[in-house]
Design a protein around this nucleic acid. Structure first.
Lengths: 193, 193, 193, 193
DNA sequence: TATGAATGAGTCTTCATTCAT
DNA sequence: CATGAATGAAGACTCATTCAT
């Protein structure tokens, strides 16, 4: 499809949606509030996204993509396994702490049934790539013989938990980031560090 | 009393709410669908719960209570720490797999802002007892010197991840239950098993 | 129709209706509020009045009847015309000031279309009698040659206006009662007093 | 602007509200009936008036304004007091007889507690001007030494009574208009005409 | 007869979406 | 393409009335 005139407007709408969802909750967020926050007319939203659901799904993908980029942009392709995993961990956790609103919305979207399976698949794609890249090069070496996706899922779960504590106790954010990773590493590595 | 308010009907409404929330999502669940599913008139819902929010909060508390009971009813007060933690793990995970719908709704409610802080506090109460009982007796012995709530939160996160895999791969449910616990235990225990 | 058991309850309901209408306005007065105020169950109201409309009409008649009684109980059958009219005036106005709530409700009911024409006729009956008694014995003497009901209607209108001022400025209630009557008398009498 | 808000539609809604209130009573007038009568969709009403209350208040003000205009447009600024008062009387009474529905609704609104004090104040404004103009120039001359507002209130009360008779007996409307004014004038003037 | 839970039509209002300007 | 008024299908909640107890 030919893109509508302004990418700026599209981005403004996505950003506005994120803000409104974070403030009022996904359920109670009318499109009118989103377009207002974005500084465009109510009808304009629908020239960029055919329906509200489409906007929500686009937002989900956009956040997922940005997150994937945060993880991969500087990912070290070489070096000790522990270092590389810790790099991923820190990149993930730092992103979440730097973008609490975005993380919050991502949480909401992840349980909302508006997000289609297709979007979830698309959103997962870059992570599959990351995992493939990171874990595959690693598995045989020193991690437990668990399914690759299981390890990744656990990492994600522990990282999100850790973010929660980092946000709740900013003074000890550094410590939580560290012990969070320790829990993960000790949980899945064959030998303790 | 003319016709006393029936506990059956109240429970039917809670159950119906759970089903409808699971099917259509918390956001898109009209009270009319709930009363219909419960087999009562639309108005009847409001003689048992003054508002929709009140119903949602009651449901949250009810699920939390049931879950607490599933964990605590047979909880072994003595014995090796590992055993007792594994008991909790299995009880939680088995409950979640046996009640996927209920767990799903609990997840939705946990991020919904309809659930009040008070409800969250009430819902947390029985778990505080678990934590006190389980973790306090443990901390000094063989677990890492992490904040008690951090360990609990990690346990919950890993357990929910594990449940996801148990549901996705029923044939290997037993194995996932086991390795899930291993990840947790190795992550937080001072010495590997 | 055979009267239900308790006249007390019937009166309690009428009184309660009056209070609730005065407080919340005729429009926003649910029957449940009335029965609660009367100290009976919601259903009980409907054993004394088949419908809400019937209750409203009964209340209208009851107030009208009480008012008529206030006017006629001690009405002087003899004496100078001016005195007797002034007696009526004072009785009316004093009743309204003593029962502002009842007067307020009467005003609401008078414009509400729930009150049937029949009720209005019935409510007017005693006043017709009063007028007949008072004015007929008077007309030919010293009042203007206006239709009897026109004079009565003017008297009522002026009296209600006067009551408004008496309620608004209680310190000058006596004065308003007096000048109100003067306006009426000078308006309809053939010669100024 | 896309489609500007149309004054026609706004007026249609006010007129429709007036008709529906007159027919069914203020209490039993759903907004759906109003929008239907106005020939617009149910939702449209709420783009012109945020709430039903706002519509009601706007209607009150609009009627009051129209009435004020009917009285003042041609009001004679000079001439004998009696003439000028009679002009006002006739203008008021003629307006009421020509717009019985509007007058009826005004009466309903005047006792309804939906109409705010602010609206009442605004609605009274033009009449204050009338009073100032008419009565102030008069008080010292030939009227009784009554409070200005008391005279005005009596005038209104008598006028509405008169209108009732004019409507009830159209054949004698002219006569009632005359004798109504006579009652008023004789009631408040220092000397009989 | 008294009670109050049960009923469901009806109320005001919101909101995603369309379309005239 | 941008605008925002128009639309009408829901949605949460109320309430007069019924009826099981």
């Amino acid at each position: 499809m030919a893109r509508p005139k302004s990418d700026d407007k599209r981005n403004a709408l996505l950003l506005a949606a994120e803000q409104v969802f974070a403030e009022r909750g996904l359920a109670a967020a009318p499109t009118s509030a989103i377009s207002k926050q974005a500084g465009v007319a109510e009808g304009t939203l629908f020239t960029y996204f055919r329906t509200k659901d489409e906007l929500v799904n686009a937002l989900y993908r956009s956040i997922k993509l940005e997150l994937a980029d945060a993880l991969m942009a500087q990912f070290p392709r070489r070096g000790p396994v522990r270092h590389r995993l810790e790099y991923l961990w820190n990149a993930f956790v730092d992103w979440g702490v730097a973008n609490p609103q975005r993380l919050n919305v991502l949480d909401q979207l992840s349980v909302a049934d508006i997000v289609t399976e297709e979007s979830k698949a698309v959103g997962y794609e870059p992570f599959a790539e990351i995992e493939a890249l990171a874990l595959h090069s690693i598995k045989t070496e020193i991690l437990q013989a668990y399914p690759c996706e299981f390890i990744a899922a656990n990492m994600k779960a522990l990282a999100e938990t850790t973010m929660g504590f980092m946000n709740a106790y900013p003074d000890e954010a550094g410590r939580y980031r560290q012990i969070g990773f320790d829990v993960f590493w000790n949980g899945v590595a064959r030998d303790k560090a």
